[in-house]
Write a protein that binds this DNA or RNA. Structure first.
Length: 416
RNA sequence: GGAGAGAUGGCUGAGUGGUCGAAAGCGGCGGCCUUGAAAGCCGUUGAGCUCGCAAGGGCUCCCAGGGUUCGAAUCCCUGUCUCUCCGCCA
């Protein structure tokens, strides 16, 4: 959630920065007004409550002394105040509800150094790593290879579930599993603790990390239960610390987990319909870190480095992109995407996304740490390391041979 | 799915209508003692919002939401969750 106090104090600046992320100034103005109204009402209400409390205390004392008549008089007074309190309370509740819903739907403030831009075309390339492979034969796409080798069974996926579900067979299934193990080990070597988490979480959890209330249409929900399938391990991992006060955060919390991820992919109907680039269910190994505010920039670098290095070990060509304001996700203040080379498409495609959300999720989830006597909000970061399905795609395409087979990257061999 | 019990501060746990934001113990922090440590002793130690330069003050929070009452952690209703036993089951 954005910092409402900051919004109140520094409206022009915040509005300007959020405009780059597509937020209307009018909406912010609205929130600011609601926030001020809420504060005013609350002060008024609290005054009445204070009065009620002290009068009630007096009644108690008088009753004990046996002064019934005096007590009765005060009761009448209190009853008047009570009506007032009820009225104000109702008003306040309405305003708070509205404010909450609106404030929770405002995206995070982009960092000052994030390039301003409209969409993915304005993202800024930071660097390219690795040689783009040259083939002396016509390259095939991973879905062609997958069908020829009987590694990818698209029909079976549709039969069992629906489109955008795929069954992996034989070597593909084994590479998938090898990749998960390789990534987890790789991340552990960077000091991330391996965790295994639930794949279903409740709405409170989804709200803290920003999926709810605004993006409920992207989530699979369990019928008649307050449970959703996770769209990324970022959600359970970050929420491990929801409503917690971390007593010592001198060393950042660093976690990694493998989970499948489930996304409805609403609104991407035409895109990537072939192959397994965009699926309703895909595997991912995720990194999450929780740091003091002053440590999050360093951690961000470390996570980008960790994910990048995994690609380098796999000897897959990739590039790093700094996302522009318009392409930044809802919760992110800053994001670097890693894109891997996909020969059949002749372009780089996203395979990892590392984000610093600053205190945006921490504020929603009340993730705090002790700094002396004070409790301060942490920063939270997340990044894929890596998207497993897309890594499989990259391997199938970049490692394909003339005779229609696929070589196994050397780092993976011990995992197979 | 059936039956029962319960939900209180970092943890254990007392509290059944007023002086309770809450006993006590543990843990944490500070100090004394000690060459150092342990033990012991003394003190301190919930969160959020808000007013104030500060000292300090006010409000809210004892699972959640309603209700009774001048006043609710405490009484009533509803919901959620947890635990135990039985059933089912990887």
């Amino acid at each position: 959630m954005i910092d409402l106090k900051l919004l109140e104090k520094d409206f022009e600046n915040i509005a300007k920065r959020l405009k780059a992320k597509g937020v209307k100034e009018e909406d912010l103005k609205n929130i600011k007004i609601l926030f001020e109204e809420k504060k005013e009402l609350k002060t008024l209400l609290e005054n009445y409550q204070a009065k009620r409390n002290s009068l009630s205390k007096n009644i108690g004392l008088l009753m004990r002394e046996g002064k019934k008549e005096e007590a009765e008089k005060i009761k009448i007074q209190v009853n008047e105040i009570k009506e007032k309190i009820e009225e104000l309370n109702e008003k306040l509740k309405k305003i708070e509800e509205e404010l909450d819903l609106k404030a929770l739907s405002i995206p995070n403030l982009p960092d000052e150094d994030v390039p301003v831009g409209k969409d993915e075309n304005d993202n800024v390339e930071i660097k390219r790593v690795g040689e783009i492979p040259k083939f002396d034969f016509e390259v095939k796409s991973h879905d062609e290879i997958g069908e020829e080798l009987n590694w990818l069974d698209f029909k079976a996926g549709v039969k069992l579930a629906k489109s955008r579900f795929t069954v992996l067979k034989s070597e593909a299934a084994r590479i998938e599993r090898a990749l998960i193990n390789f990534f987890l080990d790789h991340n552990r070597s960077y000091g991330f603790e391996e965790v295994y988490v639930p794949f279903l979480v409740n709405s409170e959890t989804m709200t803290a990390t920003g999926q709810l209330p605004k993006f409920k249409d992207d989530l699979f929900k369990i019928e008649d239960e307050d449970l959703y399938l996770i769209p990324t391990a970022e959600v359970p991992l970050t929420n491990l610390f929801r409503d917690e006060i971390i007593s010592d955060l001198n060393e950042p919390v660093k976690l990694t987990a493998y989970t499948p991820c489930f996304r409805k992919e609403a609104g991407s109907y035409g895109k990537d319909t072939k192959g397994i680039i965009r699926q309703h269910q895909f595997d991912k190994v995720e990194l999450v870190a929780i740091t003091k505010p002053e440590d999050s920039d360093k951690m961000f670098e470390e996570m980008v480095e960790c994910a990048s290095n995994a690609l380098e070990k796999l000897e897959l060509p990739y590039r790093q992109l700094m996302l522009c304001t318009g392409d930044l996700g809802f919760s992110a203040a800053k994001t670097i995407d890693l894109e891997v080379w996909i020969p059949s498409q002749n372009k780089y495609r996203e395979i990892s996304s590392v984000s610093n959300t600053r205190d945006f999720q921490a504020r929603r989830g009340k993730i705090r740490y002790k700094e002396g006597k004070k409790n301060r909000l942490t920063h939270t970061l997340n990044g894929s390391s890596l998207a497993v399905g897309r890594t499989l795609v990259a391997i199938m395409e970049n490692y394909q041979t003339k005779d229609g087979k696929v070589k196994i990257p050397s780092v993976l061999q011990k995992y197979m």
